[in-house]
Design a protein around this nucleic acid. Structure first.
Lengths: 249, 249
DNA sequence: TATCAAAGTGTATTTTTTACACTAAGTTTG
DNA sequence: CAAACTTAGTGTAAAAAATACACTTTGATA
């Protein structure tokens, strides 16, 4: 996989954009970049966008998404899943978007279709390095995301829908947590993302019954109360189609 | 929406392909076309493919999918939903695919990313007319679909997964049936598509409890047994996200 | 040593699911 | 024209799951 940008054999009509979700213990976060120029062009544009890039001609689209995130975060092998293609004719037509495109794209008026991906990471594992194309990279509180560039709010909406559905049907919450975690962290995670207040007793019972959790001999440290036992996620054969009746929570 | 093919301003790098499902009362069907040439070129290629086409530069991708189906079936305003983007580098590289591309595409070696859509239709409503680009159009039994051209088997797999999930969570089975239908048809539909044998009593109870069905005063005619009451689908406010707990069946 | 805060467990009630059995009503057959 | 057949349509007991609370435990801190 290429990790540096080339000027030749770029496909100017197809890009990828990534929605990377993280969880800091109490809030859902999204990774955003301040779109900016490789060569310090002097325009006044602090618009935030999803990390993304045009793809290379000889690059699979999933690889392109991986490359973007590798450049951005130094993380390889991220859990990445496609959200879908976004190809509205007006998706690049805000004034500020056009100014930016004029400055950085060889063919700024080209119609570009983008393919959205989403990823879940344990926020503490990665120190985000604003390398490559983005000057500033930030974890933004999901509820405080304002207007993004291009059609990125649309992509983000699709992503959160997908995340919520997944949380409900697949063992995926773990990806947002450290290897070992107390059950209460998982509980807050569900409540935060699903925007609900589940009954704690019943949540614990059900999540344990799925068999995806294994208790360890470790406990929380440095907490001003009874330390909770830490659990790990158990990789089981899980195929979402397999059992339509399966509800993760 | 344009309904005729033009030779100029085609986007040679992005196409759409449509998976159209139908149900004939006992089997799930897929609409396939025998890829062939607008101008009767004389090659020996009876490969079946999903109906699809390159998009126009000034055309939304969803519109492109609509256009393909309008050309093919004369149906406008079809329920269409995106499956996703398919962009593997080798997706057009089978021998027969290359020969065909050489014959019909202005830039046959161009890397093409395709966006898959899926649709559900009541098979009896539409007489398929092999107009436009396809010489033969057929309803193929889903279980008897062999090797398709390009990466279309992959797209079809994604489509069936999506259909099965939808059937389970959303009131979508109706789209495959006539306006009025006996409950047993819905029951067979579920069993066929989900590849299961649900308990009939329990199925009926549950499907009625959803509130999406309204009984009519009409009954089956011309059946050699007690005629069943016909039901219709009730459009209700349904938002799949709204209630994660909702299970359609 | 008492208090606080969150961990962790118990359980009665209601609701849903499951499994199976039966009756009803048209058509066809002998 | 009655019996047989086929699918329509309904009843229900038992098991399982979801829900709504309440309570006990345990370590830290005051």
């Amino acid at each position: 996989m290429k990790s540096t940008r080339e000027t030749n054999n770029i496909n100017p009509t197809v890009s990828v954009d990534c929605v990377v979700f993280g969880f800091d213990g109490s809030d859902l976060k999204v990774l955003l970049v301040q779109r900016d120029l490789r060569d310090n062009l002097d325009i006044d544009d602090d618009t935030l966008v999803l990390p993304g890039d045009l793809i290379f001609e000889d690059e699979d689209i999933l690889d392109a998404a991986s490359r973007v995130l590798l450049d951005l975060t130094g993380i390889d092998n991220l859990f990445l899943e496609q959200i879908g293609a976004f190809g509205n004719l007006d998706r690049l037509s805000k004034d500020k978007d056009k100014i930016w495109l004029d400055l950085v794209r060889p063919t700024p008026d080209s119609r570009v279709i983008t393919i959205g991906y989403f990823a879940l990471v344990n926020i503490k594992n990665y120190t985000i390095k604003p390398a490559g194309f983005a000057k500033h990279v930030i974890w933004k509180d999901f509820n405080e995301v304002g207007e993004l560039g291009f059609d990125h709010n649309v992509i983000l909406s699709e992503a959160i829908i997908k995340l919520r559905n997944k949380l409900y049907h697949e063992p995926v919450g773990f990806k947002l947590l450290p290897k070992q975690f107390p059950l209460n962290h998982l509980y807050t995670l569900y409540n935060t993302i699903l925007n609900s207040t589940l009954d704690r007793r019943n949540f614990l019972r059900r999540i344990l019954k799925t068999g995806f959790l294994k208790e360890t001999d470790n406990f929380q440290e440095g907490v001003p109360h009874k330390p909770a036992r830490l659990f790990t996620f158990v990789e089981k054969k899980f195929t979402s189609n397999n059992n339509q009746k399966f509800k993760f929570y």
